[in-house]
Design a protein around this nucleic acid. Structure first.
Lengths: 159, 159
DNA sequence: AACCGCTAGTTGAAGTGTCAAGTATTGATT
DNA sequence: AATCAATACTTGACACTTCAACTAGCGGTT
């Protein structure tokens, strides 16, 4: 067995910071969204991705990719959002295996009303702490890490 | 109602990257730890924080702070780790309100055996994608965000 | 010495996420 | 045209997290 390369000071700082952000940031955003509309950050993201899609609908697989979620997790959540009248499931005309998730009018109204508060929270909790250069650096480094985790990730395809 | 400042291109990239990392990185590390020792990333972190503490014990509150967790979440997890023989609960001599979590010999052996594989995964999934400058930048920016989320966070006290 | 607010931690219930197993459809192969 | 692997999704059970409510001890006040 070979000796593992241990983390140096910067590596440890970067790793611990990311781990902490990872726990604290979603929790804080969840709290804001829970107060504003009784939904989770993940719920919000599902609605947001649909609202930005052409025609406000996407196949479950594509929606799962855009929210970095498993199909199973997404399926459960869409069921929940469906019960609240924000999303509908529809058949895909060309391929009977595919389920299309479609944002309803009510769902669209919900996300439009929640967006300002949510964006405000993202600014207050993270972006306002950073200079413009920091933001650019984080975007660059973050995308490198995403590429390492999933080199076909959709956020990398946009550019 | 004032118009909310929308996200510009870099802000959006930084935010989406962080959101994706947030979902993908813990999932990948969980998978590795689950395969290696049937525990979660959070479980691992609890053991790691105890193993690094003076005397290998910490009050629940301090352990919660070092894992960025709620006391409730930690309490449930410590109960689980206790059942597996890795942690023990002890009374605090000076303050009867305090419960001290103590890493057992068996718990120490567990973390020692898991550490190389875990650190290897952290490198493979994130650090290896970055230059030395990237790592330093991420540490600096990450700590700024942590400070914004919790300006008394323990990782900021170390320096 | 009784009270009161605060700190520290636990618990049970309800909601979420994950995992393994299952269904149905498609496209490719023979 | 029958088979077979792969794709797309759903479901149910179990594990985990969160939330609200609770117990209990400490320190300061009157």
């Amino acid at each position: 067995m070979t000796e593992p390369r241990w983390l140096n000071a910067d590596e440890r700082r970067a790793w611990l910071a990311l781990l902490s952000i990872n726990t604290l940031l979603p929790a804080a955003l969840d709290t804001q969204l829970q107060a504003a509309g009784k939904l989770s950050l993940f719920d919000y993201n599902v609605l947001a991705m649909l609202s930005e899609a052409e025609g406000r609908f996407l196949p479950m697989s594509e929606l799962a990719a855009r929210t970095s979620a498993s199909l199973s997790r997404l399926s459960h959540v869409v069921t929940k959002l469906q019960r609240r009248g924000w999303v509908e499931r529809e058949a895909h005309p060309g391929d009977a295996r595919v389920t299309v998730a479609h944002l309803t009018e009510s769902g669209m109204n919900t996300i439009v009303s929640l967006a300002p508060g949510h964006v405000g929270a993202v600014r207050a909790l993270m972006l306002d702490a950073m200079s413009d250069d920091d933001v650019a650096d984080l975007a660059r480094i973050g995308e490198k890490i995403v590429a390492r985790l999933d080199d076909n990730h959709w956020i990398l395809r946009e550019r």
